[in-house]
Design a protein around this nucleic acid. Structure first.
Lengths: 339, 339
DNA sequence: TTGAAAGCGCTACCAC
DNA sequence: GTGGTAGCGCTTTCAA
């Protein structure tokens, strides 16, 4: 292994160039007021010593309190929805010279609090959170200290803050309305825990749609608390094993939809069971039958979120904004199955 | 808008608690040597003032040069492969109390250098890079300064550093061997720019396989420089429009495979064209025909990478490690099409 | 145009 | 047990 050479500081550069520390600082920061000859000498010393600016020390002394980094906490950076959102935010952050500290919460409230604490200790300039907690009042001190916080995908509770969300209830209603219009009456609901706001909203939309159509909701057709594909697959298999199986299914999240698709496939029931999923996936269009889905415009979600954050960073102190995007039902073949 | 209250410093806490700065530091860092009464008073002041530890200042003073953050630069955090790798690394980092600074490179060498420079200025403890540059000698000064760098997915050039990669050539050979065994002779290759090491390796594997089988490679069947689905789709459509279309296709990346699937679907040629893709996708199993693919164990890739990084952070100064994982051919229906 | 001194928020070292 | 002093690497006065 080669010898490691400790990083050079401005002092080292100053010594080598035969100038004062302050002059090096001026050159490194491209400030005026340094003669060309001196500037060149300093530049040479910088190169020779492989000097690298120490941003943390600089930030500390400047006292602006800015680190040019933002924290982005999503449900799971490997999930299609979360990762596309993260990417959209990264692009916006990049335009403004901001680095992105990313974290996955896995619907774990403790993890959210721990990660937020870490981001605060790092003095990120702003925070974007897809909350796993049901109550975010613990963030009030941070907000009071001037930290811009934008909630994405899920509205905050216990704190007045910006949010960019999707009309989950409306999207779910549209999905179930669609199935009802095709004559279905036994429509199953597969969703995650109702403690997750979006999951609950989608469940409520399902119930509202049934009620509006005068179709009594059969509680045995609604399965909540599904986290992954396997659970969703097993849940749907159970429903099919019952005496009165559903003729249609509304799946309230992308992984749940995939699990349901596996169950239908295994049972050979893909063409005779109607399916609508919340969240579109790139390959849904290519499946047989292609999958009808409620599509969220993830890029728009990210853009709106980033815009608010950037405005706040620029000093915008107006009241919290609430942006609600409306999802779109993408009609494909999977919802055409007969009753 | 509420009043913003500047963050309290240890000095403020000390003043409120009526103790010295150093005592506050002891309490905040859970050090011994503070009486219970004093400790309680300090704790109360911390809560009252919403004091938050300033990690950067602490790191600076400690002089360990550690920030407990690592940089992870992948191709695109929204891509299935990259995002799963990122997640795997995040999990490992979390276990060691490391935060993750994430960045997408989009195969842009300038962007890689810019992001690396930023990470260095932030003094990350380590760097994981899915390189977009063809030469990484520019990282030598950072390595010399003691920064652990692990290259993932693509081996480094111009620098001796750790790497965790996949046997791309072998994987591609297995894919094409498979198609040859089924009797195909006109096998198309759809891949990205040969300047991307992995893309080139997969192309070489394709050529090697053909050569080993004594099948002359028809250059008109190989299309390189495909970046996204649309380009891949159009490329395959062009091949089909030729006088001597392929009977089989090897697609060298996940987005290319999806583009090819669209082309086959649009043409109604899915069942009569054999297809093998490099990179598996969650829904390939559910397509008709299901898609045969060369699967990389992304989680294992991430784990191996993280392990090396963690070892280096712990002081391991042994010679650079080269880990090569072997992908697996997952047989499904898409490669069964007749010649 | 250049530099010396002070200090950002915090902790190591050594007094008491 | 507790506190003062010095100083991490840097930038801000302000003086020369």
């Amino acid at each position: 292994m080669q010898q490691i050479r400790p990083r050079a500081t401005m002092r080292d550069v100053a010594a080598l160039a035969g100038v004062s520390l302050k002059t090096v600082s001026r050159v490194v920061n491209d400030e005026a007021g340094v003669g060309d000859a001196v500037r060149a000498r300093v530049r040479a010393a910088v190169v020779q010593l492989d000097y690298r600016h120490h941003q943390a020390a600089s930030d500390l002394r400047r006292g602006t309190g800015r680190t040019r980094a933002v924290g982005v906490l999503v449900q799971d950076v490997a999930n299609d929805f979360s990762s596309r959102l993260l990417r959209s935010l990264e692009d916006a952050a990049r335009e403004h010279g901001l680095a992105v500290l990313a974290g996955s919460l896995d619907e774990d409230p403790d993890r959210e609090r721990a990660l937020v604490a870490d981001m605060v200790a790092r003095r990120v300039d702003g925070l974007v959170i897809m909350a796993a907690t049901s109550m975010q009042d613990y963030l009030q001190p941070e907000q009071r200290a001037g930290l811009p916080i934008v909630f994405v995908d899920r509205e905050p509770a216990g704190i007045a803050a910006d949010s960019v969300t999707v009309d989950n209830r409306g999207g779910a209603r549209a999905a179930v309305d669609h199935l009802l219009e095709r004559g279905h009456r036994r429509i199953a609901f597969l969703g995650d825990l109702p403690s997750i706001v979006t999951a609950n909203e989608r469940h409520l939309g399902y119930l509202e749609s049934l009620q509006a159509a005068g179709v009594p909701a059969d509680p045995s057709l609604a399965v909540l608390g599904l986290h992954d594909e396997d659970q969703a697959q097993r849940a749907l298999e159970s429903l099919f094993a019952s005496r009165t199986p559903p003729t249609a299914v509304f799946t309230a999240r992308n992984v749940i939809t995939v699990g349901a698709l596996r169950a239908l496939r295994a049972r050979g029931a893909s063409w005779r069971t109607a399916l609508v999923g919340f969240d579109d996936l790139p390959l849904f269009e290519l499946l047989d039958p292609s999958v009808t889905a409620v599509r969220q415009d993830v890029a728009a979600l990210g853009r709106a979120t980033a815009q608010i954050l950037v405005d706040r960073l620029a000093g915008d102190a107006s009241p919290p904004r609430r942006v609600v995007l409306h999802p779109e039902l993408v009609f494909r073949a999977s919802s055409n199955a007969p009753v």
